[in-house]
């Protein structure tokens, strides 16, 4: 192997993991003999780490409502109507959010909301024999029963486009009120739950994100329901599923 001079382009590619094994080894040999380049490579590596340390927290932030609306392609007039309606409700209902310029600023939900949904996820998805009270085979009955219990018509989201089939559902207590849990699973038996409860007053929110160990949950309020979509899956996958649920919700 004839050693070749290693230029900056290769050094950067080394830092960015953009080299094949052979070239990578060549760069390694070069670095062993050129400590001044080691200093630079180390600094660039550190820059990558500091960038992530500084900005990765943005990935975990709730997505502002106005961005969700923009991605839904909702016409501007409709957004205004919706914001105006939300503002009116907030003015009547008291605290919860406010309008700043063209933004609906949404306060985080009361703590404990995602916790109950996550607890229910952890407990029931671990069940092999009795994960649900009513199985998917009786889907129609399940939806009618839980709609009646919650006092609002539930529109059960279809997650099959994402590879998740309905397993069934159950009734749960939520601070003395009924809540519904629907469970879905994919071909590899990974399970997802959708927790739904009726909220006392309508105040649509953006998505909030909660992580508890390896369990990720997105929760939001849309129309009469508070939703929490929970799964031990990567954040982006959970967001994709949450978005499917959101799309099927009240318009």
């Amino acid at each position: 192997m004839t050693p070749r001079p290693i230029d900056d382009t290769l050094l950067h590619a080394f830092v960015d993991g953009d080299l094949d094994d052979t070239t990578r080894a060549e760069v390694q040999v070069w670095l062993d003999e050129h400590p001044e380049d080691v200093t630079r490579v180390r600094a660039w590596n550190e820059q990558r780490l500091v960038l992530h340390a500084t900005f990765d927290k943005v990935l975990e932030e709730p997505i502002p409502t106005r961005l969700l609306q923009a991605a839904r392609g909702r016409p501007r007039a409709a957004i205004w109507q919706r914001l105006a309606a939300a503002a009116a409700l907030l003015a009547i209902g008291g605290a919860g959010g406010w309008i700043a310029r063209d933004r609906l600023v949404v306060l985080p939900e009361a703590p404990g909301r995602a916790e109950r949904a996550i607890d229910a996820y952890v407990i029931y998805t671990a069940e092999m024999r009795h994960p649900v009270e009513v199985p998917a085979a009786e889907e129609e009955h399940l939806v009618r029963w839980l709609s009646k219990k919650l006092g609002k018509t539930i529109n059960l989201p279809d997650l099959t486009p994402a590879g998740f089939q309905l397993v069934g559902g159950r009734l749960l207590p939520d601070q003395g009120k009924p809540a519904a849990q629907f469970m879905y699973e994919d071909d590899t038996k990974r399970r997802v739950t959708l927790y739904m409860r009726v909220v006392p007053e309508a105040k649509d929110t953006g998505f909030s994100f909660t992580r508890d160990r390896d369990v990720a949950a997105f929760h939001w309020i849309d129309g009469p329901f508070g939703y929490c979509l929970t799964a031990a899956l990567p954040r982006e996958k959970v967001l994709q599923l949450a978005q499917m649920v959101y799309e099927s919700g009240p318009k």
Binding site: T54, L59, P64, R66
Partner: peptide, 26 residues
Amino acid sequence: RRAVVAEIPHLRRYARALLRDATAAD
């Protein structure tokens, strides 16, 4: 549209780093 929504966190992170100001980035 759903796929676009799934990209929002990455767009926000990139924009935040570009502009620093959170409101301007959004």
